[in-house]
């Protein structure tokens, strides 16, 4: 497994777990949420789906540049646009980090878009590490 970092600041940190080879292991959104002790607010269509990439970013412009499929988006941005961006790129789900309170509209939008939405208390960086650790323990 590899991790990429585009910027030194946590704000624009983009960690990517590129395609896990199928014969080795994969994690579902549900398993990732459990590993991060995340509170799942909406179980969308991708909740039981395998996550093939984890992208950590607050810059939606960057997320739109990625071509990866079935990604999980970790972000500290709490707004409807995160979910809309996730729907456009076909993400499996969104986890908002740093325990940020979410605007109530986010749950409604996630529900409408059938997008998995969860929150966790970890920072973006810690969340990436936790996903990595969970993948290794599964292996």
């Amino acid at each position: 497994m590899e991790c990429g970092c585009r910027s030194k600041s946590d704000n624009n940190f983009v960690g990517v777990l590129p395609c896990f080879r199928k014969e080795i292991f994969l994690m579902t959104m549900a398993e990732v949420a459990e590993a991060l002790k995340a509170e799942v607010l909406v179980e969308g269509e991708g909740y039981k789906k395998d996550v093939r990439h984890v992208v950590a970013s607050d810059l939606m412009s960057d997320v739109l540049l990625l071509d990866e499929e079935d990604m999980l988006l970790l972000t500290s941005l709490a707004g409807d646009q995160v979910l809309r961006t996730a729907q456009i790129v076909g993400a499996a789900g969104v986890i908002v980090v740093n325990g940020k309170p979410l605007p109530s509209s986010m749950v409604y939008v996630a529900d409408t878009l059938r997008m998995t939405l969860a929150t966790c208390r970890l920072s973006k960086y810690e969340a990436c590490i936790a996903v990595n650790a969970a993948l290794h323990s599964k292996k």
């Binding site: 607050d58 810059l59 939606m60 412009s61 960057d62 739109l64 540049l65 972000t75 941005l77 707004g79 646009q81 995160v82 961006t85």
Partner: peptide
Amino acid sequence: SLGFGAGMGLVNVKR
């Protein structure tokens, strides 16, 4: 602050 304005919009459309 809303996650946009990185100057990649038109570039991405072109891509």
